[in-house]
Every structure is written in structure tokens, then in C-alpha cells.
Amino acid sequence: MITSLLLLPVVPMLAVLIAFFGSFAALLVLLSFGPRTGPAVRSFGGVVAPFVGAVAVIFAILLGFLANDIWDRERAAAAAVRTEADSLLSLTALAATFDLPREPLAGAVRNYAQTVVTDEWPAMVRGDSAPAAEFALDRLLKTVARLDLGSAGNGDLRRLLLNAGLAVRRARNHRLDLSRDESEPVKWLMVLVLAVTSQLAVAIVHLDRIRPQIAALVIWTSGVVLVISLLAVHEAPFVPPFAITPAPILHILKVIGGPGMPGAGAT
């Protein structure tokens, strides 16, 4: 259930959260001041206002742990994309530095970058990879391994090129792992349970009059829905609307699409 909620588009997910927490807030008001249940519920009156703070602190701590997991995953995903792009750029820069032929290395890098952008990025929204990208990466590594380095006269050059190619594979694997990763459902469940508990705490300290209770519940519930929605839309780093873009890899296509091989200082 939690996973299904997090996979919803923004508007439906927001609608579900508003309906859920709004319905519970309305139920609390009805229970507190309804003709049948009101007298019994209001008999619990007298709970002091600072009681809300105790529940709110627990809710905030758990929310902070969840937010930290989400932001760490997003930062790691962005770093993986940058590392992948930097490794591709290193391949072309090394080739330019040692005057290696532009093709076929530039073509293999271009094909891989294009396949990642057009095929694999949409697939990562579903937590999948693109077989075409795997095939393009294999072709790139084979191209690096078969380069004729006789004219370069540098035995370490092949090692540098292979290390850059393997760095591309490692960065891609890390990127794919992060696209499939998600916070533990138990953490999300506990956040939702404590959010409901905090609504209950707000209601129980406002049992004397209906209007203050409604106002307090509206304000508190609005904040809860907003903060949970904010975390939910960032849960998956490669899922819109705040998805990490392939801009660093697109930059590689612009660089190697020019008339010459990029120099070592290209960015």
C-alpha cells in the first residue's frame, strides 16, 4: 500500500493524502462534538496544550530520519550521474591528449550516451534498465580494449583508458541501483501512524470548543500533508516531477558532436 502511494503522480498522491488526513480530522471533530459521542469524548478534557509538543517531537524525529535517507539517496544519485559523465569525458580527453584516432572511440561514447538518455532514463522511472544501454556499454568497453596504441608508445595509456571505461560501468550500476532503491516501508508507515497520532493529540487538547478545534486541526493537518507530500515526491530520485536529469551526459553529446575531439580541459 505504501509503495503504491509513493508511485502515484503528484496530484493523485496529494489528493489521497488530503482525503486521508482530512477525513480523519473531520472524524475527530464529529466524535468530539457529535450528539452521541461528544459527551463521552469531552470527558477526557483537561489535557494541557504542551502535550501536543511531546507527540510532535517524536513525529519530527522520525520524519527527520526519513528525510535524511531520501536526501542522501538523491545526492548519491546525482553524484553517480556526474561520475558517469566525467568518466566518459575522460575517455575522449585521453584519446585527444595522446592523438588517438577520433573514431571509433568517439562513436562508441556517443552511442552509449545517446542510448542512456533516450532509452535508459525513461526506463529508470519504472526502476528498470535498458538492454540497449548495456549493449552500448559493452561495445564501448570492447572498443577501448581494441584501440591501437602502438603510435602512442605509452604502456600505461591502455590501463588509463580501461580504468575510465570500467568507471563508467561502476557509475552506471550505482545509478541503476539507486533508481531501484527506496526507503523502508516500515519507516513510511510509522511516519503516517505518528502523523495521525499528532492529529489526535491536537484534537484532545481542544475539546472545550468546536471552532478552535477545527482551526487547529486544519492548520496542523495542512502542515502534515505538505511535509509528507514533499518527502514523497523526492522518494525516487529519477521519477518526475523532481527527477535528476541526464544533463551531464547530454553535455558529453554536445562535446563530442563537434568537429574535433575535446581536449583534456573540456568540461
Rank of each mutant, 00 (worst) to 15 (best):
G45Q: 13
W121S: 09
L250I: 07
A96E: 14
R82L: 12
G46H: 07
L105H: 14
H174A: 14
D138F: 06
M190N: 05
R158H: 14
A195L: 01
K254A: 15
G153K: 10
A123L: 09
A77I: 06
L141G: 00
G150E: 10
R36G: 06
P185R: 08
L6E: 00
T115G: 05
V239E: 05
D72S: 14
R139W: 08
T97R: 15
V125S: 04
L94S: 06
V29Q: 00
R42E: 04
S129F: 11
I249H: 05
T3P: 03
R175E: 08
P248W: 10
D208R: 14
A85S: 15
E74N: 15
L250W: 01
A171F: 11
K142G: 13
S32A: 15
N111C: 05
P101W: 08
V116A: 10
L250F: 00
P237T: 12
P237Y: 07
L5M: 06
S183M: 02
F98N: 15
H206A: 13
A108T: 10
L6W: 10
R172P: 01
E235W: 12
V186Y: 04
I204K: 00
L27N: 03
D99S: 12
I228N: 03
S87L: 06
I204R: 02
Y112G: 03
V196G: 12
S151P: 09
V10C: 05
L149M: 09
R126E: 05
A78F: 01
W188I: 01
L137D: 04
I70A: 01
L217M: 03
R172F: 04
V125N: 04
A106Y: 04
L141C: 05
E235Q: 15
V233R: 11
